[in-house]
Design a protein around this nucleic acid. Structure first.
Length: 467
RNA sequence: GGGCCCGUGGGGUAGCUUGGUAUCCUUGUAGCUUCGGGAGCUAUUGACUCCGGUUCAAAUCCGGGCGGGCCCA
């Protein structure tokens, strides 16, 4: 199956062959996490926890269901979600007086509680997060990890005394993002979404996007500044030093299992998946190579190798199935194990293991005496190489244009925009592209003309086809 | 909301027009021989989405349900 020519089919094929998830569960858009896929997701979650904990966020877990009465309090919010939530209308044999929604996101579950938790400025900042499943009734075509109805994600919610403090939180979120993305070897770009595309109820939204091989962008997360848009209806207030009661300023930040979808799309090739070493369920697979009379010796050497790597904190797997080596190579290549180690009679004689890199096919030998350090080094090199390659691909797809003539296909376009909705909609409708927004915190000053109306502007936007 | 299409072993499929024995690849299981890039041989498990109708007989024709996909709004 070829990645470039038919990304959609290729993607489904890889997900199935690598056994990341089982999409045969009889509800559209609700797939079963199989062990291999779940291991990878847990590794991603591990880094999310690590970074959020390191920045003084506390993990919590809120109930799945939200009463309609709370859900309705923020009117923009429900307007954005009411067509895509699941309703619980009955309990046992009774119809409920107050219907319940399965959370599509947890603002309306958390904020009534925040109102109770936050009393004084000394309670702030409040920084919490949870890693849970949410539910959205997708009507479009679903795709494993990328567009699902039950979404595994993390959401962090913060409350601050002022808009400035909330803004600092957003900077911190961007910092956290860069650390997580590095683990996944994922390049991305940030855009401040247009007003008509921002999160329902947000003051502004920063979208986090990456690009798939077919040139379409995939949103992998978002960061929102709410100002007091939620704290007003939910009455989340604090008492300041002067005894005045003020509404808190809030932010949220969320990324989902799409991170895994993005990793698959960005790094894999026609042979299968390529797992970034940090999140790979198995970083190394050991293939013993037997010949006529040496099976005991080779088995022992392979087990020794496994325990050395494990002692070194490397996730290694010994494939001792009774099939030929070539068949094992194929199996683990599909699953994207970053490094393969072969050990056979020849290697044992020379006190080495033969390695093969998944990302570029490079082969060589590693000294068995220092195999832990050797493997660690190569895994680091693979991470950098994956990141580098992905960055180059992303950069190569970005193109700046200053005219509506000869618009390139399959590119991420950058151009001037006067900022008015009319020009924005006109562009989106005419070219079937989506305006992702203006580059977030861009250092460079833009000077040009609005691509649609020709008015001079210092504002640029990014537009692309989206997954 | 309107229209169209599809449902066959674990996965991918043929068969359906013209009703009668369900095809092939892959996978799984057991054994023997093998093992530095998908091994071979032998044996073997496994399917017509569900309910109803027509018929001597339904994967095939008809109606409905469920599940999935596509297009338009």
């Amino acid at each position: 199956m070829e990645k470039e020519d038919n990304f959609a089919d290729w993607y489904l094929d890889i997900v199935e062959k690598a056994n990341l998830s089982d999409k045969r569960y009889p509800i559209k858009g609700m797939n079963v996490w199989t062990p291999y896929g779940w291991k990878a997701m847990m590794n991603i979650d591990h880094f999310i926890r690590k970074e959020l904990d390191a920045t003084q966020h506390d993990e919590v877990c809120f109930p799945l269901m939200i009463p309609e009465t709370e859900f309705k309090k923020e009117k923009d919010h429900i307007k954005g979600f009411d067509s895509e939530v699941y309703w619980v209308t009955h309990a046992g044999l009774n119809e409920l007086d107050v219907r319940l929604v399965l959370r599509p996101t947890s603002e309306t579950a958390m904020y009534p509680m925040f109102a109770l938790w936050v009393r004084s400025h000394q309670d702030l900042p409040l920084k919490i997060y949870q890693i849970v499943n949410t539910f959205r009734y997708e009507t479009k075509q679903t795709r494993p990890f990328m567009r699902v109805r039950e979404i595994h994600f993390f959401e962090s919610h913060t409350c601050h005394v002022s808009e400035e403090d909330a803004q600092c939180q957003i900077e911190e979120d961007v910092e956290i993002l860069s650390k997580i993305a590095k683990r996944l070897c994922l390049p991305y770009f940030l855009s401040v979404r247009t007003d008509w595309d921002k999160f329902p109820g947000a003051y502004y939204t920063v979208g986090i996007d990456t690009v798939m091989p077919n040139g379409k962008t995939l949103q992998i997360g978002s960061i929102h500044h709410y100002r007091t848009n939620f704290s007003e209806p939910y009455e989340i207030t604090y008492e300041n030093e002067n005894g005045e009661h003020k509404h808190v300023h809030q932010t949220t930040y969320g990324m989902s299992e799409r991170l895994l979808g993005a990793v698959i799309g960005v790094h894999s090739d026609d042979k299968g998946l390529i797992m970034p070493p940090d999140i790979a369920p198995f970083q190394v697979v050991i293939i013993p190579i037997f010949s006529k009379d040496n099976s005991a010796v080779v088995t022992e050497a392979a087990r020794g190798l496994l325990s050395k790597l494990s002692d070194h904190g490397i996730r290694a797997k010994l494939d001792d199935r009774d099939v030929r080596p070539g068949s094992k190579y194929f199996d683990w290549e599909i699953k994207g194990v970053p490094l393969r180690l072969e050990i056979g009679g020849r290697d044992i004689e020379n006190n080495v293991a033969t390695f093969a890199r998944r990302d570029n096919g490079e082969k060589g030998t590693i000294d068995l005496d220092s195999v832990g350090q050797g493997v660690e080094l190569i895994l680091g090199v693979i991470s950098s190489a994956l990141m580098e390659r992905a960055k180059n691909i992303l950069m190569s797809k970005v193109q700046e244009i200053d005219s509506l003539e000869n618009m390139p296909e399959g590119r991420i376009l950058k151009f001037g925009w006067c900022g008015c909705e009319e020009c924005g909609h006109k562009f989106e409708d005419t070219y079937e592209l989506k305006i992702l927004g203006t580059p977030y915190n861009s250092k460079e000053k833009y000077a040009g003309r609005c691509l649609v109306c020709g008015k001079e502007t210092d504002r640029s936007v990014i537009a692309a086809r989206t997954m």
